[in-house]
């Protein structure tokens, strides 16, 4: 028997939006995130990202698209172990032909932008705290000026206080004009966005605009 993780899902996200996709586990939100992140292609249907039809691309074209259009922030950070902060951030620029000093400048700018302290740039990734690791991951996501930043449970491995600072960082990025898609199963986290899409059993249950209640932000 064939099971569809997603069925008849159709929506659009505009530039500059901050969208949360929320749903319980098994709802199909992970599959949706994989498709949005060009990590996987849908069996049928179409996905346009920044004007490109993604669903028909081959492996290398998908790689190029991910590199140029999408910045990933993962739940488990996924930094290269025993590697400096700076090199982790520069990872997507590998084989780009950009001269090394320029890469370093760009990586430093992104790290500052993501709120990372200058003194930690040379540290090894495994010497950082969870919050710092996630900031490095955000800086890495920013390095190629992506069309969207895709965050998959970015606070899943963090305590409440650190989660608050990370979510504030996302809100700041959004205010600076970045498009952010956040996948989560926690209402508190989803509530930071301006729009929430509820997914359940492979279909969109609800798609509503949201006024952030600022559970995290002290006002």
């Amino acid at each position: 028997m064939k099971t569809n993780a997603l069925n008849g899902v159709s929506f659009g996200i505009k530039k500059g939006e901050f969208v949360s996709i929320i749903g319980p586990s098994g709802s199909g939100k992970s599959t949706l995130m994989h498709i949005l992140g060009a990590l996987d292609t849908p069996t049928t249907g179409q996905y346009f990202l920044d004007g490109f039809e993604v669903s028909k691309l081959n492996d290398d074209e998908l790689s190029d698209l991910r590199r140029n259009k999408i910045g990933f922030v993962f739940q488990s950070f996924n930094l290269l172990p025993r590697t400096t902060v700076l090199r982790n951030v520069m990872l997507p620029l590998l084989y780009s032909g950009m001269p090394h000093p320029e890469r370093e400048e760009k990586a430093k700018a992104c790290l500052r932008y993501a709120g990372m302290e200058e003194s930690k740039f040379g540290n090894l990734s495994n010497q950082l705290s969870g919050g710092q690791m996630q900031r490095v991951a955000i800086a890495r996501a920013l390095i190629n000026d992506p069309a969207i930043i895709l965050a998959d449970e970015p606070t899943g491995n963090l305590d409440t206080k650190t989660s608050a600072t990370v979510m504030r960082a996302f809100q700041e990025l959004n205010q600076k004009g970045h498009t952010i898609i956040l996948i989560t199963h926690e209402m508190d986290v989803a509530d930071c966005a301006n729009r929430i899409i509820y997914v359940r059993d492979g279909v969109i249950e609800k798609d509503v605009l949201n006024k952030p209640q600022d559970h995290f932000l002290p006002q």
Binding site: D60, D64, L65, R67, F72, L80, L91
Partner: peptide
């Protein structure tokens, strides 16, 4: 393997 997955996810081509 995870490292390889990460490299792919951030857009490094297979050949590299």
């Amino acid at each position: 393997t995870r490292e390889i997955g990460l490299r792919k996810a951030v857009g490094v081509r297979k050949i590299y």
